[in-house]
Design a protein around this nucleic acid. Structure first.
Lengths: 112, 112
DNA sequence: ATAATAGTTAGGCATGCGCTTAACTATTAT
DNA sequence: ATAATAGTTAAGCGCATGCCTAACTATTAT
């Protein structure tokens, strides 16, 4: 029985890889077939399949096989956990800015 | 000169670890000193230092040393890249739901 | 029936990652 | 001056991750 933190962990781990992120981005447009997803990458099919498995067991993606072709889709709301967590990690300064309707300007201080 | 994708990659990689996430969560409350950050974990100080270094080079965290004590803070807006990316990965269905003000109900279909 | 297509399984390899211990530096307290 | 505190550096170890090739299954096309 996976909880909030486990879900988040799976999602974040899944998204930590550029290939998998690219797949998610592709699927955000529309569902796609495995070979279609593999095409843009210079990587073997099995390698991409592994990425798909990671995405699927993170709950980011669903897939269904019709005949010999598997169609993969982005799971609506799959990224909600992340969105939720993100909302909680705002600094006090940002919360205050929210209340005031201010958009913070950030400067990245260089180490001296 | 790091671009959007590199930033995102660093941020997501950094957040893919539970320890680092816990540190971020702690720092969202208020800045803290290294030993203070290390305390909750059953892990050597050097191990935690490495995590801090990852967080820092992902731009999630800043730190300054006064005397022998280093204070670490969450960088305001550091999570913006992620928030931004997240916004782009909404499915067409979700976009439509947004327009209609509908909150989608999700069911996770089990594989037969 | 044969061949081509779409995906899958298995095994192996290199590299990265999270962690440890040991030894060291720099600052502050006694 | 000595000792305690706060953090740092370096080296090494084991396991996870991302990738590959080779061989295989199942479906569709000829």
């Amino acid at each position: 029985m996976p909880n909030y933190y486990d879900d988040l962990d799976l999602v974040l781990r899944a998204l930590a890889d550029p290939t998998r992120r690219a797949v998610v981005e592709r699927l955000a447009k529309s569902p796609a077939v495995v070979s279609e997803l593999a095409a843009p990458f210079s990587m073997s099919l099995p390698a991409l399949m592994q990425h798909l498995r990671v995405l699927e067991s993170a709950g980011l993606v669903t897939s269904h096989k019709h005949g010999r072709v598997r169609t993969v889709s982005l799971r609506p709301g799959a990224l909600d956990v992340l969105h939720l967590w993100l909302g909680e990690q705002r600094t006090p300064a940002e919360h205050q800015a929210d209340r005031l309707g201010i958009h913070l300007t950030r400067t990245i201080p260089e180490e001296p």
